[in-house]
């Protein structure tokens, strides 16, 4: 019998080397997260996946699973901490869901729904961030960037292109692209890159797909992010599926 640990009282098997998050996802158990993705190396920056192991806070996407661990996940205390983290993310950027084409497919929004976040609570930063529409097929809308570096990892680990990187420090941290001009068009980025379909929010958007899926039929309209189980990590984009069906159909 391989080892297992308790997640909110439930037995979760794991194979050696797996993190708590990987084991939980494999068992179809949802631990809130934003910067984690099953296909890429763990990052540990958003801290949404913070759990308590033996009474101590731990980042479940980076901490190794160990036999006998008692992991608290969806407790009131941790969900309240996650709500605060989500509120910090919402006030740091410019998140105008009503006019955003990623709404309904956005992991930040769906996680906030799951945590029952009703207000951003803090004073908004309302930063001045650019929009880069230079690339023929993909739009970069930096206002919604939550600095999760999924695109950085995808472009480096899968596409081997290093198109994206984080520059600056503290709240001045921002996404930059790998070109002298700083424009996406001047990089070797294409709409079929893995990095083009990995953004959990509405920063990297394929053009001409905006609002193709009606409200009510989008990924997180159909079911909450917690019900996505193991593939909760898959970056949902019903718009991509719609486009795919359009081409295939």
């Amino acid at each position: 019998m391989n080892d297992s640990f308790l997640l909110d009282g439930e037995d979760i098997p794991f194979t050696p080397g797996q993190t708590v998050m990987q084991a939980a996802a494999a068992a179809g158990k949802y631990i809130p997260h934003l910067c984690w993705h099953p296909d890429f190396a763990a990052h540990g920056s958003c801290k949404l996946c913070t759990v308590k192991i033996g009474g101590r806070f731990a980042t479940s996407c980076t901490v190794r699973a160990a036999a006998g661990q008692e992991v608290e996940n969806r407790t009131d205390e941790l969900d309240a901490k996650r709500r605060t983290l989500l509120q910090l993310l919402f006030v740091e950027g410019n998140h105008f869901c009503p006019s955003c084409e990623k709404s309904g497919d956005c992991a930040l929004q769906a996680t906030a729904y799951e945590m029952g976040m009703l207000t951003p609570h803090f004073d908004h930063f309302y930063p001045d961030r650019p929009v880069d529409a230079s690339h023929p097929d993909v739009l970069l809308e930096f206002n919604r960037c939550i600095l999760c570096e999924l695109c950085v990892r995808a472009s480096r680990e899968v596409d081997g292109k290093n198109v994206f990187a984080l520059a600056g420090r503290g709240t001045r941290s921002h996404l930059v692209v790998n070109s002298d001009s700083g424009r996406l068009a001047d990089t070797d980025f294409t709409a079929s890159d893995r990095a083009a379909a990995v953004c959990p929010v509405g920063v990297i958007l394929k053009k001409r797909l905006g609002f193709t899926v009606p409200i009510g039929a989008r990924t997180y309209d159909l079911n909450p992010i917690s019900a996505m189980g193991a593939n909760a990590g898959q970056q949902a984009d019903s718009r991509a599926n719609a486009a795919h069906e359009k081409e295939v159909g």
Partner: peptide, 20 residues
């Protein structure tokens, strides 16, 4: 707030909120 490296949410935004 000036020295936070900006990697993780609680410190990046938390120190900025504190300074404000």
């Amino acid at each position: 707030a000036h020295e936070s490296c900006g990697f993780c949410t609680p410190c990046r935004v938390g120190t900025a909120v504190n300074a404000r």
